[in-house]
Structure formats: structure tokens, C-alpha cells
Amino acid sequence: MSELTYRDALNLALKEEMRRDPSVVVFGEDVALYEGSFKVTRGLLAEFGEERVKDTPISENTIVGVAVGAAMGGLRPVAELMTVNFALLAMDQIVNHMAKVRSMFGGQTHLPMVVRMPGGGGSQLGAQHSQSLESYFMHCPGLRIAYPATPADAKGLLKTAIRDPNPVIFLEHELLYNSKGEVPDDPEFLVPFGKANVVREGSDVTVVAYARMTVLALQAATELAKEGISCEVIDLRTLNPLDVETFVASVRKTGRAVVVEECWRTAGLGGDLAHRIHEACFDTLRAPVRRVAGLDVPMPYSREIEKLCIPRVETIAAAVRDVLAASV
């Protein structure tokens, strides 16, 4: 074990996989000479050279399209979009090509590719640079989606993503890059897709979260424990495949659930999770599932109002108390 930041854990995953497999190539805007706008690709150009670590023009749609073609041709491209917000320029290649090529060509090819994209709000970057678009990708069949909460998962999930034969959207939270944690040194350390992590066991309420929302949910659980409330916190790790079994089993045990998502509430993924819980646990639920979500507004810049638009420890804790109060 070593203590690493989320950023360095991702960096290590890229280096280990590039050392392991010469078909892994990395490209994106400013990833080579500049070493990434969030420095996730630091040192890659120096170690692997310009054949494998390549800067691209600011052409997001074509970045993804080139990865699609390169994967079809037998490489394992890891493309970086500078932020998830710019993925909107690449939605044609992501949704119409990356997600569909295998199916519409009758399974005659597959795309072992990863598109990394930092995202999430809370850095006062304004409406166009603060979005959480995980629900957009989750809505589209044909993609795998990973979104780590911890440095260890950042390493283990990215390594799995690179080795996976399917196209993977790999989301990284900008506010987690400096977070630290113990990371296994083993270069064969992999975190499997589709296995949610019960990060805190509890008996009163299940809190389902992912990425930075998991970090906040754990802090809320610590606060609530002081009030004698026992939360079970589940980190989904991957949004596709979605480990329904794990959170349903937890809710069947606790009888109550709060679903936390950073994206906008309306048509957000939390509605889908809540519905799955209601369907599977109706007979054991003691209160309606509560959702904590981003507010349905374009993100404002000012610090004092921006923070109100994103789930916080207080709003998660309040939702847990509400569920308990509403219980039959």
C-alpha cells in the first residue's frame, strides 16, 4: 500500500497499463507536452514517447471518433476530454458511434477504448464548466460507465476500464483529484465493474451514492452516528453495469433509502435508482425513497449560491432524518 492522491492513482494506472500492453495509447487536448490540464498524464510523454502519448487539436468529436477507429483497428486507446462539459461536442461520436458500432454491425467488432473526462461542480467555474452529465451517458445502452470515489478505486477501476473489451466512459471528479488514500501497489490490482462497494455498514438507512457523493455521504453518516442514526453507505463505483443487487439487498435490510446524485434532479439517475428500489423493496420499505440531487439550474458562479446547488453533507443528513421521520 502507498498513500496516493486520486490524481496520482489515475496516473499510476495509466503508466502500469501502458507498460503492460503496448497497444495502449493516450491522446487528448494538452495531454502530452502540457501533461494534462489536471496533470493526470504527468510523465507519460517522457516515459512512453510521442508515438503513444499524443496531443490533439481541440476537436472533441474527432477525438472520440479517432478512438473508435483506433479501437476497431486493434489498439486500446485512452482518450481524454479535457472536461465532461466538452463531451457534449462529442455526443455524436459517443452516442451514435462508440455506443452502437458493435451492435449495429452484428457483433463483428468491439471497441476496447476508454474516454476519460473530469467533471462535477463546486469550483466556481460557471455554468459551462460545472456540469455533472453522468445521467446522459447512463441513458445510452452500449457504454460502460465508471466513476470512482477513492484513490484506490481510481486506480483499480481505470485499469479495469483499459482492459475491458467494451467502450468505457470514465468520469473523474475534479474536486477529488487531491484527495488522498491508501492504494494497493500490486500492478494486478483491479476493481471489477458492476460490484458496488458497501463502504460503511449500518442498519437504519441505506444511502446510495457514487464518486464525490460517496465522500459526502460518509461524512453525513459520521455526523448522524452522533445522533444514534446508523447509515449504510453504498458506493456504486460503476453506473453501467449497475449493481442493483447490492443496494436492493441493503434496502431490504434497512427498510429505508436515500439516493444521492450530483446531476440535475429532473430525469436524473436517482429517479431510476429510486424506482428500482421501490419495485424491488416495496414490501419492506418503511418510507418513500428520498432523493438528494443537484438543483435544476444552470450552475451560478458566486460561491455562496453555487454551494446551494450541489448536494452537501447537511442536505444528505437532512434527507436521512426525513426518511426516518416519515417511517411507518
Binding site: 474527432t62 471518433g65 479517432v66 473508435v68 477507429g69 483506433a70 455524436d92 461520436q93
Partner: peptide
């Protein structure tokens, strides 16, 4: 849509 994919195949 096929033009970027073609570039990717050529790159591979």
C-alpha cells in the same frame, strides 16, 4: 461520422 473513425483506423 465516418471521417474521424477512418482517421482512427489509419492511426492504428
Amino acid at each position: 461520422g465516418q471521417l474521424p473513425v477512418a482517421c482512427g483506423l489509419a492511426f492504428s
